[in-house]
Design a protein around this nucleic acid. Structure first.
Lengths: 300, 300
DNA sequence: ATAATGTCTTTTATCGTGAAAAAACAGTTT
DNA sequence: AAACTGTTTTTTCACGATAAAAGACATTAT
């Protein structure tokens, strides 16, 4: 086997959901942009849909014949990218304890364990290295630096520097900039989530990322914007890992976000700075408490 | 062909230089650490040295028989890493004009042109992407963002943020820290270079990197330290590219460095901040003037 | 007993290969 | 003629294979 067709399968599933809404599908190029894939993939999808009797396909005419059934969908796990699969496996190992700092990482072993080729693992590790958790020894193995307290502190130091600057830039944006309506929308979403916090508290993680990315983008600096990938990655796994008092934590965070949004809307730099600092401080605290203290914060 | 033996060749050349100094070589493990390679490679080197009559090798005894001649050395170009070869080729294309922003990068074409496999090119591009000059389109090609004025401004913005913080951290380091003697040594090297600036002005580039890396390290933050790789990379090619008034520029920079070093030694945060700001400002100016104005600073 | 050498095993670096997906080209339809 | 469909070419992605290099183990010398 050389390359999985997960792009096709994922696009197919998404296309199935489109069938519910319309009586006939748009043109091939249009579908392509809609699903974010090439026409080649679109045609593969259409071919299969015709085969399974979902649509009648004759040139431009793509008439929906029946509603998709649950078994029309490809299983979720077959729609993942190899990179996603490797990342999940790797992070599970890393977080599931037994991953002491200094430990060496074996490409071949990882590849065998996950059941993929070494090239994919190598490429993953290279991409992953920018998160600062692993490091390569020339012509040799990778070394795990560990998800330690030191790491969290270094990460949050940069985050705070970048976000304070971005927030200030945000507040200075002209009134006719599109960000203000984006912010308005985010504020609504926050309020909605706050009112249904009891049942939907686990949706905060996604909202959190959207909010902070919007702010970082105001810096108009690619290095700041890109750095949010590091933060997002860490917080993504942090949210999965640390479920203690999740509801309460998120409730507090929503409150801080709303205050932060108010400050931005006021365009008062002093208020923005204060609100931003306050939120970042508690975010750092949350992250720090989730890190097992056992490992000593050693630095040679 | 699957893997070049450049590690061996490079280590061999470096080992040849050792022969000048001694009458006999140390033990295999010792040589290994000295050259930064494994014992396997050391033994390959020794085997060849015996073959070419450079040494007599019998177990522990490795007696030097004759001085190495120029033709004993492997040619320089055979000692380069594949990654170095690819980087050079890529940067040449990028800087040699005709590389407009938005242009797409073709892995296969690059690989063919350089005469290497696609895997190596892919890995290079992934590693290179953290410099912010290229970007990947999902399931598709890479896009060149261009070495534009905007890039230089974004880069220097971060650099200034990081270096000001690092310099402050540096000045706050205890008197018994090893950095102070490192700084002393750097100051000497600066003075020596300043006195022979007429002939050695092109050695400044290397000194510059050593100096700034020392300062950045004081931040004790891996993200700050790692970011210097981006700066170093840009300045490395910048120095190669922009030879206009090189001597004058370097002379000025040495002066600024010396003032900066004085400020650090005074441990007066105000002075440090001022000296650092002054130097960074002129460094930014130098970088900016080297960027062709032709390309408009477009941002969508 | 420690540290070297000699030998064998494992891992990394790199390539060629082939299927998936994208992109380019050519021919149709509105 | 603009936008679509049909067909062909090119590129990306991922694998297994292989030489270089590292690392582990066994043996020998100080």
């Amino acid at each position: 086997m050389s390359k999985s067709n997960n792009v096709y399968k994922d696009a197919y599933n998404r296309c199935l959901r489109l069938l519910d809404e319309t009586r006939s599908l748009p043109s091939e190029p249009e579908l392509g942009t809609l699903l974010g894939v090439s026409r080649t993939t679109v045609r593969t999808i259409l071919a299969r849909m015709e085969e399974t009797g979902l649509i009648a396909w004759n040139k431009r005419a793509k008439t929906v014949l029946r509603e998709p059934r649950p078994d029309d969908f490809f299983p979720e796990e077959e729609t993942d990218t190899l990179a996603e699969i490797i990342e999940r496996s790797f992070m599970r190992r890393l977080l599931a304890g037994g991953a002491e700092a200094g430990m060496q990482i074996n490409e071949l072993e990882l590849a065998r364990e996950i059941g993929v080729g070494t090239t994919s693992v190598r490429e993953f590790l290279i991409r992953f290295s920018r998160f600062g958790l692993i490091e390569k020894r020339r012509n040799s193995h990778w070394v795990l630096k560990g998800f330690t307290r030191a790491f969290a502190l270094e990460l949050t130091e940069i985050r705070e520097m970048f976000e304070l600057r971005s927030a200030a830039a945000f507040a200075a944006l002209p009134q006719d900039s599109a960000v203000w309506s984006d912010l308005e929308r985010l504020e609504d979403d926050h309020r909605r989530l706050a009112s249904e916090i009891v049942t939907r508290f686990n949706e905060f993680s996604e909202l959190d990322e959207r909010f902070h990315r919007l702010i970082h983008r105001a810096s108009r600096n690619r290095f700041i914007v890109d750095f949010y990938d590091v933060i997002a990655m860490i917080f993504h796994y942090h949210y999965q890992w640390n479920k203690a008092q999740e509801r309460e934590r998120n409730e507090v965070a929503i409150g801080e976000h709303l205050a932060y949004i108010e400050a931005l809307k006021s365009r008062d730099l002093g208020k923005v700075d204060a609100a931003c600092r306050k939120h970042l401080k508690s975010a750092r605290q949350t992250l720090l408490t989730s890190i097992p203290e056992s490992r000593s914060t050693q630095k040679p």
